[in-house]
Design a protein around this nucleic acid. Structure first.
Lengths: 224, 224, 224, 224
DNA sequence: TATGAATGAGGATTCATTCAT
DNA sequence: TATGAATGAATCCTCATTCAT
């Protein structure tokens, strides 16, 4: 690995493999901010610190870059959650809370949260991308939540519900929180506080799942 | 085949006053389907049955048309709901149900439901439109729901909640249902059934609001 | 002429023959101000107080209107001068002065003075119009001035000059005065005073025409 | 016929720095010939040997190109004259002659002479450009001529005149000569001969400036 | 690899002209 | 005659994509 370097001391030794990631990061910012069509590749290149031509060394075209942005920011989202579900040993209510708070920290509060807005906006124009996202993210997220519900119900912790539909309903507020921050957040007089939004969300979801006799227990633990 | 008339139709048989609505309807379809940027005014004109130039008799430019589409399809949505809240005399749970089912029939199931997706996608590019929508639709919808919560709580029907945040949370699944039908619906193996989605939604919301001792009452009435 | 009027008392009984003139007057204003291409027929119609369609009752198209504007404002320009030359009995220097001052009053100071600018700008695009103007205005003006020079020279009042070229030279400042008022006048800190400009002009021209021995005579009479 | 190469010429063989000048030259031709509005950028591009899009690499829009055409062809005009006035040591009459003949050779007879026509035609539509031209060209030209007059008067060579207005008057025939060649020249039966026009001009101007006692001197030197 | 000048198809917009009323 | 809604060809301008260097 101590090979002879061709250019003595490039100012910041940037591994060439970093380029695509830098471009994707720049593109994510701009796509999220402006949408697919309104984002100019000039701007992406400028923000990534490369020339326009360089984009085409790594991506076939704008659509390809768009898909790379989406695909490249999709995998990390679920893996943490699925692992957690797999090995969690506490109550299902606690699992739900950890999942939600973990999602917020790892994804919801980051710029990756801009992806759903993008997908929603462009699903009509890129059906294969929508399909990909539906299969790889939405379905997996729904399944995961479905498994959590089953875990709680089986343990007698949650009441019986129409799980297939409830998972859609219950995920919606999380998606909307992510979307909100990239659409209306800037219009608000007093900004929405994500933590309290999530508190209210968990309060609602867990209350609605609790069995009548389980109601004296406190469900929501405020984030310390 | 009747006669060799070149132009059997009069060049403009329709009335001037009908035109803007027809154009807005056509534009709504296409904007919802493709997004703002990907919609060509040629197509809007063709779908409205007019020529390209005619659009400019009624709208200054594409952006103006876009705003007209939003503004023109947004206000009627809330009025029905606000009236209902005003004059409703039954239980607050019933009120919630009627509001939600009414929204679905009047808006959620129509093409107007495509508007939220549009706004979400273009909020960054049209901040004033986003502000307008935030002020005229979102704020009013949140207020309305907040009033319903207060009504239920004051009557001892609902338990005490963090209303300011819960309204955001509780509206999210409705918005997402509207958005869903214009984004991922076409990717699904088995289509999401809106009625059962709404059942699950109402079940969740009303369960979570009910006071412990009120639990023997049945909350959700399946749509017959 | 006391015929049964269809509409009792049209507010201002406008003879229908007045229409073309009103349109031409409106068009003159706008063509002079903005040039041919930048003048919209909407604006012409609006200024003339008629609808756009009405323009086409009187003029075949925009070019035709343009030509009518030019042709309609061309004849009055020269007739007064030619008559004056014909019947003048005073000195040729006085004739020059009267011609110039008469031109200024009848034409140079009116909006008709905008025509030369128009013609100059559009000569390349409307060669037949340029030819018409050249034949009907420029040639006649040059001839007239040539005749005045001959009159003065024959009478021993003016020295011999290259009349064919001098007439071009000598008319230039008058044309430029007309053009100036429609181009740079608005840029000036202190506006050009036409009367003093014409004084300087007459002083120059008559001085240059005077014979050496005639120099003790005063040539220029300030306008009282 | 040499070989079936599709594109024998490299797509862009020329240097970046040469482009703006080439475009400006092409645009000057067309603007002068047709005016601002009637010139299509397609044609400018074609004449410059570039594509439409290339224009926008160097100029923001059509107006910007127009201004560049004017500004780029305007300043060099005056510098030569101002230098000459500064260092001239002969008679002021000779200075006038050299200035005029120099102007003719360097500017009046070139395509740059089309600029005044352009400015005149478009002053109303581009007030800032008119202002620029007024300040940078007209004012400087007037000042220069005013200085020459003062030089002649101070030396006792010229008679006293109303210099402020005479300069306007005296420059007019030169401007008109430039304009003429781009408007009516093509209408003439026998073309105006610029040299003889300038002879007549100088004869007139210098005659009109000469003091009575200075008249035995010959003023005008025919161009050999 | 990396660049960025050049391209040109595509789309928004304008406005002279038409024609049913 | 007079209107003005409708038309659509014409043109400016954008920006994804290419390719010689």
């Amino acid at each position: 690995m101590n090979a002879p370097e061709k250019k003595p001391q490039p100012r910041w030794a940037r591994r060439k493999d970093a380029r695509p990631e830098e471009i994707i990061a720049a593109a994510l910012d701009l796509f999220v901010e402006r949408g697919f069509a309104a984002t100019r590749l000039d701007d992406v290149a400028a923000r990534a610190g490369v020339s326009k031509g360089t984009l085409y060394l790594y991506f076939e075209n704008k659509e390809d870059l768009f898909k790379a942005v989406v695909r490249g920011n999709v995998l990390p989202v679920l893996e943490h959650g699925e692992e957690l579900v797999e090995q969690f040993s506490g109550s299902s209510a606690d699992l739900v809370q950890q999942l939600v708070r973990g999602w917020w920290e790892l994804t919801g509060s980051t710029k990756i949260a801009g992806i759903p807005k993008l997908i929603i906006a462009e699903a009509g124009n890129f059906p294969d991308l929508a399909k990909f996202y539906y299969d790889e993210v939405i379905q997996r997220a729904l399944s995961m939540f479905r498994r959590v519900l089953a875990r709680g119900t089986d343990a007698g912790e949650f009441r019986a519900v129409d799980a297939d539909h409830l998972v859609h309903v219950a995920l919606a507020p999380l998606v909307m929180l992510a979307v909100w921050r990239h659409s209306f957040a800037c219009c608000e007089q007093e900004e929405l506080q994500p933590e309290r939004y999530l508190d209210a969300y968990l309060d609602m979801v867990l209350h609605s799942l609790s069995k009548p006799q389980a109601q004296e227990k406190k469900h929501v633990r405020k984030k310390s």
